[in-house]
């Protein structure tokens, strides 16, 4: 059979390409950087192995049958009408059951294991995650700080993400650390993950949540413990007062236009809005709204037309502001960094 060979070659070629070509470790199930992801990958490998075995057995019988019992020209014999075979049928009932048991035992044990809450001795960090149409809020109840779209965690310590949605169902997925949990309105969920080593890992929303579902990204940034503690302190002691003249104008404009939806701590504002992402230490973030690289030019583009970047975004456009005012806003926002004490 030419086709079977061609197909096998195609499949094998593709497999090797995909695996040797290798995925990006910041966003990959097959290159996990965390304990949970590794346990999950082990199960993926185990089930793949068992299933490959099954597929190969079927394929071998299949290829044999197709080649061996193909009608030859001039062949008109009537094959024997076999009713069945109890022995064979028992064989292919029992063997799959055994294979399934081999798979089921580690499945159940891992299922229980990854839901287990970490012991206090492991110094778990709790982070409250809230999903909003197209952005993520991260709140650290122990440290009393809030950030958005980028969550900093200490490597090597278990993180308990306690999650909920503000509006529609979202789902929290960091492939490199381990998957995945839904964020539902009116219901609390918990996901425990751990990063083995410092690094940046990409996160995605995986439940269709509206027009910009595809762009509801976030980043997990894992630090060494000391670095993480420093980050927490810098966030706690943040100073959001503008320094330059232009930035001062920006700070005033934020008070006029933005603070009803956004919060900036220690900036002298009386209101701290909650409808949009927290902008405290916004200048530190690597991206704007989880999509654009964080630089003045992109920030300008975002403020002038957020829907162009993220269709359906709930952030209003500020195209009506003068160019100078936008410049001032950008200057101020980009100057917001954590305190460097």
């Amino acid at each position: 059979m030419k086709f079977v060979k061609a197909k096998l070659l195609m499949v094998i070629g593709m497999l090797t390409w995909f695996f040797t070509g290798c995925s990006n470790p910041a966003l990959s199930v097959v290159k996990p950087s965390g304990e949970v992801g590794k346990m999950q990958l082990n199960l993926i490998y185990l089930s793949t192995a068992i299933m490959t075995l099954v597929t190969v057995v079927v394929a071998v019988i299949y290829i044999y049958v197709v080649i061996r019992f193909r009608e030859r020209p001039g062949d008109t014999h009537i094959p024997k009408q076999v009713e069945g075979s109890t022995v064979l049928e028992i064989v292919w009932t029992v063997i799959p059951i055994i294979l399934l048991i081999i798979l089921a035992v580690p499945t159940v044990s891992t299922t229980f294991q990854i839901e287990k809450r970490p012991a206090p001795s492991q110094h778990p960090v709790q982070i409250n995650v809230t999903g909003y149409q197209y952005w993520w809020k991260f709140n650290y109840p122990q440290a009393g700080i809030t950030t958005a779209n980028e969550v900093h965690i200490p490597a090597g310590r278990p993180i308990e993400f306690v999650m909920q949605s503000h509006d529609v169902i979202h789902a929290f997925w960091v492939p490199s650390l381990g998957g995945k949990r839904d964020l539902e309105p009116g219901r609390m969920n918990r996901l425990i993950l751990k990063a083995d080593k410092p690094g940046t890992y990409e996160g995605k929303c995986t439940e269709l949540c509206g027009a910009s579902h595809a762009l509801m990204n976030f980043r997990v940034i894992a630090h060494q413990t000391a670095e993480y503690d420093a980050w927490i302190r810098s966030m706690q002691k943040v100073n959001s007062q503008a320094k330059s003249v232009l930035a001062k104008e920006g700070q005033r404009l934020v008070g006029q236009n933005c603070i009803g939806c956004h919060a900036i701590r220690n900036g002298g504002y009386k209101v701290l809005g909650g409808k949009g992402p927290e902008l405290t230490a916004f200048g530190q973030r690597t991206r704007i709204a989880g999509v654009l690289d964080n630089n003045p030019q992109n920030l300008r583009a975002w403020l002038q037309n957020p829907q162009n970047v993220k269709p359906g975004s709930r952030m209003p456009s500020f195209a009506h502001l003068e160019k100078k005012q936008i410049d001032a806003l950008v200057e101020y926002l980009e100057s917001l960094k954590g305190s460097s004490q």
């Binding site: 999950q40 990958l41 993926i44 299933m51 394929a59």
Partner: peptide
């Protein structure tokens, strides 16, 4: 006969999806 191979491939990934911890990675991807 094309069905047999194709369906077996779809069926085995179905069993892989039935493993909850693995499904946490596969789900909605």
């Amino acid at each position: 006969s094309g069905f047999i191979v194709t369906f077996v491939m779809g069926g085995v990934t179905g069993i892989m999806l039935a493993v909850p911890p693995a499904d946490f990675q596969f789900h909605d991807s």
